[in-house]
């Protein structure tokens, strides 16, 4: 699979990362290198191998359904840029 410059720009946009034309070229080279590696790995026979969803071979521990957190919004909001009536204020967004 070859990556195009447009792919790079699209991914950057989706990830909300601003990149210049030069940076996009550079990233294209780097990402293409990674894709080459992936392509080499594709050659390996994997049909008998169970897909891995996590790097560690462990299972998820669960917590009991009880409320353990208390209200700390004053503390959290001390570092927020703008707060009013207990709400975090952000630039207006309407879809």
């Amino acid at each position: 699979m070859t990556l195009s410059l447009d792919d790079v720009k699209r991914v950057a946009n989706l990830a909300r990362i601003e990149i210049s034309e030069d940076e996009a070229q550079q990233v294209l080279m780097q990402l293409s290198g990674i894709f080459d590696l992936i392509e080499q790995m594709q050659a390996i026979e994997t049909s008998n191998i169970e897909p891995m969803s996590h790097a560690q071979d462990m299972i998820q521990r669960l917590r009991e359904d009880v409320v353990t957190e208390s209200d700390q919004h004053m503390l959290f909001q001390a570092i927020a840029p703008q707060v009013e009536a207990g709400l975090y204020l952000v630039p207006k967004v309407i879809e």
Binding site: G86, L89, V90, P91, K92, V93, I94
Partner: peptide, 13 residues
């Protein structure tokens, strides 16, 4: 998201 009455900003709960 609450879109009313926050000096042109949105409030987040």
């Amino acid at each position: 998201s609450l879109h009313e009455e926050f000096h042109g900003m949105s409030g987040i709960d």
